[in-house]
Design a protein around this nucleic acid. Structure first.
Length: 632
DNA sequence: TTTAGGG
DNA sequence: CCCTAAA
């Protein structure tokens, strides 16, 4: 905890140099916070760090390097100091080493984590974040750090936002830093370890790379990726950092622009406001950088081919574990347990953009951003799926829903849904993992995998949902943009329209035009609806209705018997009947799924037979001709 | 929008 | 469940 201040401070100063223009308010806040923190932290931390250093600095260095990395990662993820790290990898390493040495076991990790969290809470800007680790930063390499900082600064711009978010959260929440830290610390490091270990060697390069890239305005950096040493690893690393940033940026933007104002945002906001923790997340995320986003997009275009496959991979992976939850013991002292969730990735449905070749990259970037913004404005709703089951009751507590701190939850999914679409749960649900139109998205996706664990809301709130979504959103936005077209067509076209306007707007070029492809339906429906096998009860209801109404009046059947079941459309009912008839005609051994009572199947056959002969009679208003009597 | 059917 | 031609 203590170290943070130092880093924060340094960063701040450096940053200011370059970014002064941009960050007034934030900077001020950051500065103030930094000072406060610094005061507190300096005294306490230094000693520890020194001791740790003395212990094993060298020995640990390489051995623990891997372990350390995760920490770093975490820190970076936090949004705070990634930049700093990249700038001076070495120092960072040292710091890390120190940290590692310090920790004998899990404790050390916790410590680091805690620090991180603290940093988040307390120190917003922290480019110097890396310093936080131990005194090393403060005592040993201050100079270097500072030097490095400048480079980072740009990226840090995002950091500003982060800081902002943090501040907000802090203020609002009023949570003690400790709490925050604990939450954040929770699992992040651990999870990251495994994956990131191996990359340690690469890490530096990657980081550096990232930094460089960021600097490049035009994405010149984009070309780099391939060149860099890291093969598989890199993506992840970058992914984490970037993703975070991206998310943050997206969130931020959304927040800025309208999250609060927009319909969808409302919900979210509400959630956030309610819970401090949420706010934190939001804030963090919000901070992001636009540049990164842009970059990402750009990349997309360039890498399209290769990336596609990659992206897919990533997606798959993400989807598989898209949502990982870890029960953490972290418990807060209080009776309230917290559920820690980690969303590895969140994708948004595809977005189609049509841009003339002669358009500038800048215009393209703007266009994409605009589209993303418009989408964000349009509103996204988050759904929570547990074991594939959509939990629609927002009032349910997590515990009631079966999401408990002590349970291993491997099957939680969040869905994004266009706000406009349907208020009712029945609305089309867009699964987290959306397909990306273009491979372009690939890189982003990779990064998307965020492992950052975030402090979860208290059990019992829907807030949690909102949280998750946030993150996801931000991420998703970057990669793929969901085409609102559908939404527009359905109800309020706000979102879609928004898009349209966008095209002109970006307009410096004027040439750009965003065209939502008509696949729009796809986007909306895009993802296949969640499979919800008919229950025996539903089958019974269906059979009863068909007995009464016949087999050619599915709309009526729907109205009569399934009017209150949003997710069963008359087409669904028709399809189900079709399968029921088929099922009834095959041997029981050939049937799959939950067995349907033979009695029902018999009724199906009877009704089918009956109506097949009376189809033409279909009495309109009342077909009651075939009461139960007809189908005993 | 519904139906009816093929996938 | 999806997609769509027809009505």
């Amino acid at each position: 905890m203590p170290r943070v201040p130092n880093s924060a401070r340094g960063k701040r100063s450096t940053r200011r140099k370059k970014d002064e223009n941009d960050m007034c308010a934030f900077d001020l806040l950051a500065t103030v916070a930094g000072n406060l923190l610094a005061d507190q932290d300096n005294s306490s931390n230094v000693p520890n760090t020194n001791a740790a250093k003395a212990k094993k600095r060298k020995s640990v260095k390489e051995e623990h390097f891997n372990e350390i990395l995760p920490l770093k990662d975490v820190a970076m993820e936090k949004d705070v100091g990634s930049g700093s790290v990249s700038a001076f990898p070495r120092q960072a390493n040292n710091c890390l080493a120190e940290n590692s040495s310090t920790r004998n076991g899990a404790e050390s990790i916790l410590e680091s984590l805690t620090m991180k969290s603290n940093m988040l809470a307390k120190i917003p800007e922290c480019g110097s974040y890396g310093i936080h680790h131990p005194g090393s930063s403060s005592s040993a390499e201050p100079e270097q750090v500072q030097q490095a900082e400048p480079k980072v600064i740009r990226r840090q711009a995002d950091g500003h936002a982060v800081a902002y978010g943090i501040f907000d959260s802090v203020d609002v929440d009023g949570k003690p830093p400790a709490l925050v830290s604990s939450d954040s610390s929770s699992c992040v490091p651990l999870s990251s370890h495994d994956k990131e270990h191996q990359t340690s060697s690469l890490y530096r390069g990657e980081v550096q790379y990232t930094a460089d890239r960021d600097d490049d305005e035009n994405s010149s950096g984009c070309t780099h990726p391939s060149t860099i040493e890291n093969k598989g690893c890199k993506p992840q690393y970058l992914g984490n950092h970037r993703i975070r940033k991206l998310l943050a940026s997206k969130v931020r933007k959304a927040a800025r622009n309208k999250i609060c104002g927009g319909i969808p945002s409302k919900k979210i906001c509400g959630g956030l406001s309610n819970k401090g923790s949420k706010l934190n997340l939001c804030g963090k995320k919000i901070s992001t950088t636009r540049q990164k986003v842009q970059r990402t997009i750009f990349k997309k275009k360039k890498l399209a081919h290769h990336t596609t496959s990659f992206a897919k991979e990533m997606l798959t992976e993400a989807s598989g574990t898209s949502f990982a939850t870890g029960g953490q013991n972290k418990s807060c002292e209080s009776e309230n347990y917290h559920v820690k969730l980690r969303i590895k990735s969140f994708n948004i449905p595809e977005l189609f953009i049509k841009v003339p070749e002669n358009a500038t990259i800048g215009s393209l970037k703007r266009t994409v951003m605009d589209v993303v913004n418009s989408i964000m404005e349009g509103g996204l709703r988050v759904g929570v799926l547990l074991q594939g089951k959509d939990i629609q009751d927002d009032n349910k507590t997590l515990r009631q829903a079966g999401i408990c701190h002590d349970k291993k939850l491997n099957n939680i999914d969040f869905t994004l849904q266009c706000e406009r679409e349907r208020e009712s749960p029945s609305g089309v649900i867009i699964p987290e993992q959306m397909d990306f139109l273009t491979a372009d998205m690939v890189e982003p996706l990779a990064r998307m995998k965020c492992e950052e664990p975030f402090p979860e809301a208290d059990v019992g709130d829907d807030n949690q949902q909102s949280k998750a979504p946030y993150r996801s959103r931000s991420l998703s936005d970057l990669y793929s943009v969901h085409c609102p077209v559908e939404m527009a067509s359905q109800d309020t076209s706000a979102s879609s329209q928004a898009i349209i306007p966008v095209s002109p707007a970006p307009s410096d070029m004027g040439a750009l035009a965003i065209v939502p492809l008509c696949k729009s339906k796809r986007s909306e429906i895009g993802q296949r609806r969640i499979r919800r096998p008919f229950t025996v009860g539903e089958v019974e209801t269906l059979v009863g209705a068909v007995e009464q109404l016949g087999t050619g009046r599915w709309r009526a059947v729907k109205t009569l018997a399934f009017d209150n079941i949003e997710h069963r459309t008359y087409v669904d009912l028709k399809d189900k009947w079709k399968t029921l008839v088929h099922t009834a005609n095959i041997s029981p051994q050939q049937r799959r799924g939950q067995p349907v009572p033979q009695e029902l199947l018999d009724r199906v056959l009877a009704a089918q037979a009956y109506w097949s002969q009376h189809l033409q009679d279909k009495p309109r208003g009342k077909a009651r001709l075939l009461p139960e009597i007809c189908f005993p």
